[in-house]
Structure formats: C-alpha cells, structure tokens
C-alpha cells in the first residue's frame, strides 16, 4: 500500500507533543541541566561537567541505598509473586464467592500510600498497636523504631499486604481466561495437579506475570511514601531507600546538582532493570525466534 504523506498531520499531533514536552521532556531537561552545574543559591550556576556523577558513583551512601533498594525489591518480588499465584489458584472460579473475593482483594489497592504507612505505623507500635503489642506480649522484642530487622520486616510485610492483591488480580484474570477444555483434556491425559499447573496454568499466566513483575519491580524500586511514614528511613539509615535518600539530598540538604545527577542515574537503573526483566521473561516464555529458522 502506498503511504500517504501529508505534512498537515504534524499539526494534529502538536497538542500531544506540547503536553509531553511540558510534563516530561522540559522537567527532565531541567534535571539534566542541574546535573552538570553547581549552584550556591542566588540563581547562580557554575558548569562542573561530570563531577557530580563521578562523586555519586563512588559514594558509599549511594551504594548502600542502592543495595538496600535491590534487596527490598527482590524480597517483595520473591514473596508477592508466589503468594499472589497461590491465592489466585485458591480463589473460586464461579458463584457468589467471586465478587466477594474480588472486592476483598481490591481493598488494599484502594488505600492511599500514606494511609497504608500510617496504618502500619500505628499497627506496629508496641504501646498502642495491635501487632506490636501482641508480638511483645509473646516475648518477641519488636520495635521498628530501634531495631533494623524489625523495621525491615515491617516495611516488607506492609508492602506484601498492600500489593500482593495486584498480583492476585492479574493472575486471576489469566486463570479465568483458560478454557474449561484444557482442564478436561488434562484429566483425560491423566495429568497430575502439578502438571496442570506447570503446563496449563503457568504458561497461560505468563503474560500477566510479566506485567506483574515489571509493575511490582518498578513500584518497589521507587517506593517512598510508606517506608517514609513508618520508619522515616531509620533506624539510622537502615531503611533509607534510593527515593528517600534522593529527597533528603534535594530537599533536606538542598544539593540540587548531586540530587539531579542521582535522579538521572536512578532513572537509568530502573529503565535498565525493566528492560532486562522484559527481555528475559519474554524469551523464557516463547523461544519462538529460536525455531523460526526451521521452516
């Protein structure tokens, strides 16, 4: 088919271009601009080249926050994905239980981030919180404001409570789309429960799982509000993730140059990881390209 070239089309996309420019491109360029300059206030800027980047990449503070964030993200993925699949498999496929389960599952997702943080902050307190009081009365010394292990446990359990539902709902959507004939065929083929999961349910959930992993990774890697409300990054720096660190640097210390450099690196890391996840999971599932040459 001949392609129609009409330059008027550019005017049609202009509004979108302007919108994207003002909401994404120009702010990003401002950050890029800051990242290569130093400022001593008074709107005076000095060109420093890649100095901030060099400083950032060799800074222990950045390394620690990055490692903490990676541990956090992989921990919650390791818990939420299997747990989400498990719950989705247990959910009823028809009847009155379906809407009940769906509503229950959707509830945590509807709670605003800072409210989730506040809920867990109170919930975990040793003096008035149900969880904290209960654990301490069992003889477990649980205090998330002083003990890094308790702080980490609280932040991870909170994220699992908040976001496993998303994985459940995505997996459930994948599961209910499997035609009944697959299960019937599996029964006729004498497949075990495990084989049904491995060869029917898991492959059919593959694409939704990919979305779930990507969303949960990106979100958890950028997590700010909930741990900030609960622990404020403490005790010490033990729960200071990248975004909390970034805010401290930009707003707390007003180091605009280093903070801008850090946001750029942060952004690139998320982009890189997401790309890797996407590629790996896509290839693991299909392997189509590998066989394409045979025909």
């Amino acid at each position: 088919m001949e392609k129609t070239v009409n330059n008027k089309a550019w005017f049609m996309v202009l509004p979108v271009l302007l919108l994207v420019a003002f909401t994404a491109v120009i702010p990003l360029m401002t950050v890029v601009n800051y990242a290569f300059q130093d400022s001593f206030g008074n709107n005076q800027f000095f060109w420093v080249g890649i100095e901030w980047f060099q400083e950032l990449l060799s800074s222990e503070r950045f390394h620690d926050a990055l490692v903490r964030n990676l541990i956090f993200s992989f921990s919650i993925l390791a818990i939420e994905i299997p747990l989400g699949i498990g719950i989705a498999l247990c959910m009823p496929k028809k009847g009155w239980g379906v809407p009940v389960c769906l509503v229950l599952m959707a509830l945590p997702l509807l709670v605003p981030w800072n409210v989730v943080g506040t809920i867990w902050q109170v919930f975990g307190r040793a003096d008035i919180g149900l969880l904290g009081y209960f654990l301490n009365s069992l003889g477990i010394n649980y205090n998330y404001t002083q003990d890094p292990v308790a702080a980490w446990a609280t932040v991870i359990v909170m994220d699992v409570w908040h976001w496993t539902s998303l994985v459940v709902l995505l997996c459930y959507a994948g599961l209910v789309s499997i035609p009944e004939a697959y299960y019937q065929a599996a029964r006729i083929d004498g497949a075990s429960r495990w084989a049904v999961f491995r060869y029917i349910q898991l492959p059919k959930m593959h694409s939704v799982l990919l979305i779930a992993v990507l969303l949960r990774f990106m979100d958890s890697f950028m997590i700010y509000t909930e741990p900030f409300v609960v622990t404020g990054g403490g005790p010490g720096n033990s729960t200071t993730f990248l975004s909390i660190d970034l805010v401290k640097m930009a707003i707390g210390q007003f180091d605009l140059g280093p903070a801008a450099a850090m946001s750029l690196v942060y952004f690139l890391i998320i982009l890189l990881f997401s790309w890797v996840f996407y590629t790996v999971m896509n290839n693991a599932g299909t392997e189509k390209k590998h066989y394409a040459g045979e025909e």
Binding site: Q184, P203, K204
Partner: peptide, 15 residues
C-alpha cells in the same frame, strides 16, 4: 481410560 478430542485444539503450548 478414555481418550477425548475436543472441538477446539488443546495443546500444551510450552511443550
């Protein structure tokens, strides 16, 4: 010990 073939093809995609 019955074999049944359904209206729409049922194959195990990943195998």
């Amino acid at each position: 010990n019955i074999a049944q073939v359904f209206q729409f093809p049922v194959v195990y995609d990943t195998m």
